[in-house]
Computed example of a mutant assay.
Amino acid sequence: MTGRHDAVILAAGGSRRLGRPKQLLTRDGETLAGRVSRLVASTQPGKTIAIVGAYAEHLCGRLNGALPVFNPDWTTGMASSLHLAADALAGRDGPVLVVVVDQLALDEVHLERLLREHDGTQDTVTAYGDAAGVPAVLRARTLARAVTLQGDSGFRALWTGHDVHRVRNDALAQDLDTEDDVARAVAAGLLDRQ
C-alpha cells in the first residue's frame, strides 16, 4: 500500500477521566503518541496528519514525521478533530488509515491487514467484542462526511451494516481511560511504570 493511502492520528483529547495525558504515557521508553505514529509510518502513507489539542506543545516533537494539526475545539469532542482531518485531506481520493493513541495491543501486523483487506468498496474497520471502530481504513468519501458529525460522535454514526468490512482483533477493545486501566496495562507489560 506504499503511498496509496493517507493516515490520521487522533491525539487531541484531554484524558479527562485519567487525569493526565495518556498520549505521553510510555511503553519501552517511547510515548504512546510516538509509538502509534511510528506504527503508522511503517505502513508508508502518502501523507500523515496528527490532530493534537490538549497537550499539543508536548506532542509535536514526538510524532515521527506526522504533520500536527491543532484542534482549538478539542474540548467539544471527537467530531471536531474529524472535521479537521477531513479538511486537511480534502481533495485526496485514496483510502485513509485512522488510529488513536491508546490501543496498546495495536501493531504493524494489524494495520497492514486492514490495508491489505481494504478493497475500496466499503470502509474496513476493526471489530472487537460487539463493537467496530478504529483502527480503520476509510474511503475518502467517508472521511469527507465527517463534517456532518457533532460532539463525541465518531464514524460509527455514519456506518450501517453494509458499509463496513470487519477485521476482528479483540485485543484492541482495551484502551486507557482510568488509572485501573493503566495499572492493568503495567501489570501486563504493555506500559512502563510511570
Rank of each mutant, 00 (worst) to 15 (best):
G91E: 10
V125N: 01
Q103M: 15
A90K: 13
G91T: 08
T26F: 00
A144T: 07
P135W: 10
E108C: 00
V101T: 15
R168C: 03
G151R: 13
E179C: 00
E30R: 15
L138W: 13
L190Y: 00
A132S: 12
L89I: 08
V100H: 12
Q103S: 11
V167T: 05
L115P: 00
R4N: 10
L97D: 11
H110M: 01
G19N: 11
R168A: 15
A140H: 15
V182S: 02
E57G: 11
V8I: 12
A157N: 04
D180K: 05
A183S: 13
M78Q: 13
D130A: 14
R27A: 14
R62W: 00
R38M: 04
Q194I: 10
G53N: 10
A7D: 09
A187H: 08
T43H: 03
T148Y: 00
D73K: 10
L149Y: 07
S80Y: 07
V134T: 13
V137E: 03
T26E: 07
G53I: 11
W74I: 04
E30L: 14
T75C: 05
G154K: 05
R145S: 15
Q150W: 00
G133L: 07
V8R: 06
L25C: 09
D130F: 04
R17I: 01
G154S: 15
S81W: 05
D6K: 01
W159R: 07
V96W: 11
T48I: 03
T76N: 10
T124H: 09
A79N: 09
R92T: 08
T48M: 12
G29Y: 10
L39K: 12
D6H: 14
A56K: 06
A56N: 03
Q150I: 06
V40L: 08
G94P: 01
A86P: 03
D28N: 13
A183T: 14
L59A: 01
Q194F: 10
P45C: 05
G65S: 05
R92Q: 13
A144L: 03
G94Y: 11
L172K: 09
E179H: 06
R116M: 05
P45G: 02
G151E: 12
A131G: 04
P21C: 11
A131N: 12
G14K: 08
A146E: 03
D102N: 15
F70V: 13
Q194T: 12
S80A: 15
V36W: 06
L63Y: 04
A12T: 03
